[in-house]
């Protein structure tokens, strides 16, 4: 399988935060969802991939070309905050971008802006939050990028806007050469469109695999502590003890259900997995 991004031994530290020994492949032609709590390192990882942050050690390769920075690879980026100049309007942004991107498609940009309902002569400072995200998406998709990176792009969007946005992403992915790396706290969005999930926690990757396998495999065992521990620590990823019960995250819930039919074993969503790993104790 060809990889859009290959990361080997990436280390990056900011003050007390350390991202250590990150090895990650982002396969070409797929949507990879990046999840993690606030301060886990998602944005740091994304900035290292794009070249906005310099790595302390390790390597990042984009489509077998130079290290992160995308000098020879076309990358579209969407951030949670709009970095365009407030006194510029959509038409001026488009003109500026047309000279920055070799494959800029002005017609596509105008079409997207029209579909988004954003007048080209309206200044960025007059945009709503949703419009600021949409213009970033319009710019990101208007130069036929090989890789689109989105960092919390749907944050602050209403459900209808998010649904529209995800449809856009799926439309972009119709071309099998396109790749998306998307970080989000809204795990339901990733459950809908992601092919792979990467979970980063305290600067380390704690889970990385196909979304369907993760959702089919992981489960939450609930009960009293002795009952839960009875399944064996080798089957438990982490344990969360509440005042009245104990929950354990297991990697293979079907095996646990077969072996311990008396136990309550629920499928784990990405949210459940995140909460268990972040708030629980590692087994």
């Amino acid at each position: 399988m060809e990889n859009a991004v290959e990361i080997r031994g990436l280390c990056k530290s900011f003050g007390s935060f350390r991202m250590m020994d990150i090895d990650l492949d982002i396969p070409r032609g797929y949507v990879v969802g990046l999840i993690g709590e606030n301060g886990a390192g998602k944005t740091t990882l994304i900035k290292c991939i794009t070249g906005a942050n310099l790595v302390d050690s390790g390597s990042i390769t984009l489509f077998d070309s130079q290290e992160g920075g995308g000098n020879e690879v076309s990358v579209g980026v969407v951030f949670d905050e709009c970095h365009f100049f407030p006194q510029m309007n959509g038409r001026q942004i488009g003109r500026m971008m047309s000279s920055l991107f070799a494959n800029w498609d002005g017609d596509r940009y105008a079409e997207l802006m029209s579909n988004f309902g954003i007048p080209l002569d309206k200044k960025i400072k007059e945009y709503s939050r949703g419009m600021r995200m949409r213009i970033q998406v319009a710019v990101a998709l208007s130069h036929n990028p090989d890789l689109v990176i989105m960092d919390e792009a749907t944050a602050g969007m209403d459900p209808a806007a998010r649904d529209e946005f995800l449809d856009l992403v799926m439309g972009y992915m119709q071309d099998e050469r396109h790749t998306v790396l998307m970080s989000s706290h809204i795990t339901s969005d990733l459950e809908r469109i992601a092919d792979y999930i990467v979970f980063i926690h305290k600067g380390r990757i704690v889970m990385n695999g196909p979304k369907d396998e993760i959702l089919d495999g992981y489960g939450i065992v609930k009960g009293s502590e002795p009952d839960v521990l009875a399944i064996g620590m080798e089957n438990i990823v982490c344990i969360k003890r509440d005042e009245f019960s104990t929950s354990a995250l297991v990697k293979d819930r079907k095996s646990v259900i077969e072996a311990y039919p008396e136990l309550v074993v629920d499928p784990a969503s990405l949210d459940d997995i995140m909460v268990m790993v972040i708030r629980g104790d590692v087994a």
Partner: peptide
């Protein structure tokens, strides 16, 4: 003020 450099470099501007 706008964080423009971070965006531009991320989008591949050398």
């Amino acid at each position: 003020q706008c964080g423009w450099n971070m965006y531009a470099v991320s989008a591949g501007v050398p």
